[in-house]
Structures are given as C-alpha cells and as structure tokens.
Amino acid sequence: MSEVAIVVENLAKSFRTRSAGGLKGLFARSATTEVAAVRGISFQIRPGERVAFIGPNGAGKSTTLKMLTGILTPSSGHAEVAGFVPWIERQKLAQRIGILFGQRSQLWYRLPVRDSLRLIARIYGLDRDRAEARLSKLASTLAIGDLVERPVAQLSLGQRLRCEIAAALMHAPPILLLDEPTIGLDVSAKASLRDHLIELSTEEGTTILLTSHDTGDIERICERALVIDKGLLLLDRPLAALRAQHLRHRLVTLMTEEERPALDLPGVAVAAHEPHRTSFAVDLDLIQVERVVATALERFSVKDLAIENPPLDDVIRDIYRRGEAIVRQEVAA
C-alpha cells in the first residue's frame, strides 16, 4: 500500500434544497437554496493511523465520510482513498474499505448473525474456506463466538454493534470507516467496543477513521483528531496535544445525601446544581480529578458520582477563543 491511505484536498459539497418536497416539487418551480455542508477541507491519513473526525451535529462529518466512500459526489475538490477516487470507482474501492454506520444495520434481523456474515463474505467474493477462517478469527477478536448463532433480534445493542463490525471487516479491508459507532451505547459497551477496535487495528494494521460528536470516543481509540465545525477543518493535531490544550477540564457530578455540598478547592467551581445533585467543573491545570473525588468522598456522603469530558461545543469554543483554528472564525460564522 502507498504512503497515504486517504488524501483529501479542498473537498467541498453543497446541497440544493427546495422549499417544498414531494409532489409539489414536481409541479411548482419553487426557489432552491444552496446549503454548503462541507466548505473545502484538506488532510492526509497514513496507513495504520487511527483518526477521529469530530464535530457537533451538522458539522459536515457524515457528508465528508460519504464522499470518501463514494456515496456522495463532491461539488469540488479531490480525494483518494486506497488509491481510488471514491465517487468514480465506488465499486472497486468497496473491496478496500469497510464501513459501519452506527445506526444502520447490515445484518438480517430475523436470521442468525452467521448467515448474514456468510452472505457478506459472498458479496466480497470470499470462497467458503476463507470466509469460515475469517469468521472464526473475527469471532474470537470481537468476542462474538457465542453470538453468531443467534438471530439479530435477540442481541443487545452493544452485542449487535460488535457483529456489525465483524460484518464490515469480513473482507479484511485495510481501511475502516465508522460513522458514529458508539451512539446509543452504555459506558461498558462503549469501553469494550473501543478495546476491540484497538486490538484489530494493531493486529491487522487497519487504518481507522471514525466520526463522533463525543469527545470520549476519541480518547481511547485514536491517536489523532480532526476537529470540524460548520463544514471547515478547525484543528488537525495529535490527540495528546488536543488533550493537553483543550481537554483541560472535567465535569465531576456528585449525588449526595447533603442537599448542597460545597468544595472550596482551587480550580473547582460549581457548574450546575439541583438538590442532592451538583456538578463541578474541574480545571486540570490547577488540580487533579483524583484529589477532587477523594476530598468529596471524605467530606460528604456520596451516593453516586460521574466524571465526564467537557462537551464538544466547549472544546470548539475553546479552540476559537485561543485563536488556534486553522480557519478564521468570521469565515466559519
């Protein structure tokens, strides 16, 4: 494989939207407006890299991903994935990429998972022996050995997603594209999914590009983050740098016997409060989360607690505020 897995140069996409859809659009010449979803973004991804493509809803993540798979033709710009121009050579590219849309299933609802996986192997031209070998390997890596005999209808969301990933990887593609893979998953299912993805990419050298609007997703899986907002690339840097600069605080939420617990520690401020439930913003430059939690446990009778990353909106605001965005804010606004 070449030096780059994915090249994107000035990629842009705008949609024409009509004021009224359906039959009306056939009869009436209603006004159309151009909506720019992606406004000229560029980046490169090396083979084996794990990259997070993050941004709030409507930022242009999915549109970009769709252009990279050939499902959408860009308005302008250029891209190559595994050496193919996606929208020109969609079906050839298909052999080289695996795709998972977090909210869509490629498995047959009523049939055992194994049946679907066998069919997908057929679609990609795997013969029986290779298909079975691949299936048993994926079954052990993704820990779905005992799930594949069951119909999809009987699986939990987390179990189903692991099977969906197996489906996307049946043909051992060098590039895996995941669109919001963790949406709707609970914390433990998310963690297990992340572990499996990391194992796969280190074992097979798979390039991973995943989109998410959850900063938590990127922390475990990815080495590099592309932050996109309003169709423009804001930031492209290693995750360690992003973490050091923009993920410098956490939200610690305490459920306590006390109605209104107070913490007078440096770098800790009340972010939200309702009786018996208080959220503190913790500035990691000034204090460690561990100390905050330890102090809280010592002083209050804590029934439950949660530690969260800052929401993505805050991160993006922070990027703008620090003037670090690749693009100018007035362009984005």
Binding site: I71, Q91, I123
Partner: peptide, 18 residues
Amino acid sequence: RTGAIEAALTRPVDYALA
C-alpha cells in the same frame, strides 16, 4: 428513506441487483 441504501452502495455488488 432510512439511508440503508447508502451502506448498500458501498458494496461491490449493485444495490438493485442485490
């Protein structure tokens, strides 16, 4: 409507034929 066709379009077998 659900967009399932998009996933199908990224496969090496034509959606309509499949």
